[in-house]
Simulated assay, not measured.
Amino acid sequence: MKYYVNQNAQKNGDHEVHTENCQYLPSIANRKYLGDFSSCKPAVDEAKKTYSKANGCKICSPSCHTS
């Protein structure tokens, strides 16, 4: 599965990580491709290299959604 991180932070400061088919996937201009991963955990870890407050989307990556 391809994962992307929203380059715009949520109100709480989180940068959400989404799968390629998520209904909340940000526009091309507002997302950064993270890579192809078997689960959200390594994708969130990759996002944290750029955004310390990365978090999984509660819809497409609920097991990685912490706040």
Rank of each mutant, 00 (worst) to 15 (best):
K32H: 13
A29V: 15
N21G: 00
N30T: 14
K11Q: 12
I28D: 11
S52Q: 08
S61D: 12
V17A: 09
N21M: 00
Q7H: 03
C64L: 08
E16Q: 08
N30F: 06
N30K: 15
H65W: 13
L25H: 10
G35F: 00
I28K: 12
G13F: 13
G13R: 07
N6L: 06
K32G: 11
C60S: 02
F37V: 00
S63N: 11
S67A: 04
E20P: 03
Q23I: 05
V17R: 11
D14V: 07
K11V: 06
C60P: 09
A9T: 01
C40G: 06
S61K: 08
N6D: 15
L34H: 08
R31K: 10
C60N: 03
D45V: 04
Y33K: 06
H15G: 08
D36V: 09
K49R: 04
K2D: 14
Y33G: 02
C57K: 14
H18E: 12
N12K: 01
Y51V: 07
K41Q: 15
N55S: 09
N6A: 15
T50K: 03
C57S: 09
A9N: 02
P62A: 10
P26D: 13
H65C: 06
K53M: 11
S67R: 04
N21A: 09
Q7C: 13
R31A: 06
Y4I: 13
A9K: 04
K49Q: 06
K53I: 01
L34S: 03
Y51W: 10
S38K: 15
N6K: 09
K53N: 11
S52H: 00
K49A: 00
N21H: 11
C60V: 00
A43G: 07
D14Y: 08
Q23W: 01
N21E: 04
S63F: 05
Y33S: 08
C64F: 07
E16H: 04
D36Y: 05
T50D: 07
L34I: 06
C22T: 12
E46I: 00
E16S: 01
K48E: 13
H15T: 08
Y4R: 14
H15P: 13
S63P: 04
E46W: 00
K41W: 13
E20F: 08
I28F: 02
S52W: 01
K11E: 14
D14L: 07
H65K: 04
N55P: 03
A29I: 14
K58E: 09
P26Q: 14
N30D: 15
N6V: 09
A29S: 13
R31L: 07
T19P: 05
N12Q: 05
Q10V: 01
Y33I: 03
G35Y: 01
P62I: 13
Y3F: 15
I59H: 02
I28C: 03
P62V: 14
P26R: 10
G13T: 11
L25E: 06
T19V: 14
K58F: 12
C57M: 10
C60W: 05
N8A: 08
G56L: 03
C60H: 10
T19L: 10
D36K: 07
Q7F: 03
S27Y: 03
E16F: 07
G35E: 02
H18V: 09
E16Y: 07
G35I: 00
K41P: 09
V44K: 07
N30C: 12
